[in-house]
Write a protein that binds this DNA or RNA. Structure first.
Lengths: 109, 109
DNA sequence: AAAGTTAATCGTAATATTGCGATATAGCAA
DNA sequence: TTGCTATATCGCAATATTACGATTAACTTT
């Protein structure tokens, strides 16, 4: 079918999976790292930095924005993107919870 | 094209993205949580617990196993899955590094 | 107004993912 | 051996993703 069934899961599961899925692409990892590294907002330097077509980068930015991982503000003719810390800290706590319970788990097989 | 270009990225970026992508599905999140929760190995109770077809669950387990997130050992007629802590701690450090640099980043837009 | 720059959107082709039923495989039980 | 159970694999259909070029939109500069 190709359609992920959503009715079987909790909202937390769907939400976490959605964030991880969007982060689960090397271009989007590279974009996030670049946004962090430039320490402030960057715009379309991503195109030359990463080496994908402009439309492709724009599409990845759209997906990151759609789930709230980044946000963009228009600055003249270009757009300034940066991390949305609210979403990011929500992700951080979900992921940490998972890590915590894994670490508390005994080995078994 | 639909083919993710891998030559543009570092091995770390590709590796992290691969792990996150596999975790980026609610069924696989639910599987991981279930493995953790039962505190020891579980087998095919996932089918009744999650409510997908047996073949679908098996496929998700295969993907989790393929990237090394879980491992399975055969126990008689069933298979016992559990977390692969080595991969998991590698993921944990990659993700924490990302979180750390995000938190150190100033707000800008 | 006209031209230039930057980013978003559209249309598309190629490939990947998701989910299922059916079938195969393998160990256990009688 | 013959069934029984549990898991894996195959084949398929529906949908999603990725990437690109072309176009559009919006704002700046000349």
């Amino acid at each position: 079918m190709g359609l992920t069934r959503i009715d079987k899961y909790t909202r937390e599961q769907v939400n976490l999976a959605q964030l991880l899925k969007v982060l689960g692409h090397p271009a989007r990892i590279a974009i996030i790292q670049s946004i962090i590294r430039t320490d402030s907002c960057i715009c379309g330097d991503l195109v030359t930095e990463i080496g994908l077509a402009q439309s492709t980068i724009s599409q990845h930015l759209k997906e990151l924005k759609h789930v709230g991982i980044i946000q963009g503000t228009i600055e003249g003719t270009s757009v300034c993107y940066c991390i949305n810390k609210e979403t990011w800290s929500q992700l951080e706590s979900s992921v940490n919870e998972l890590f915590k319970s894994v670490n508390a788990n005994p080995d078994c097989c």
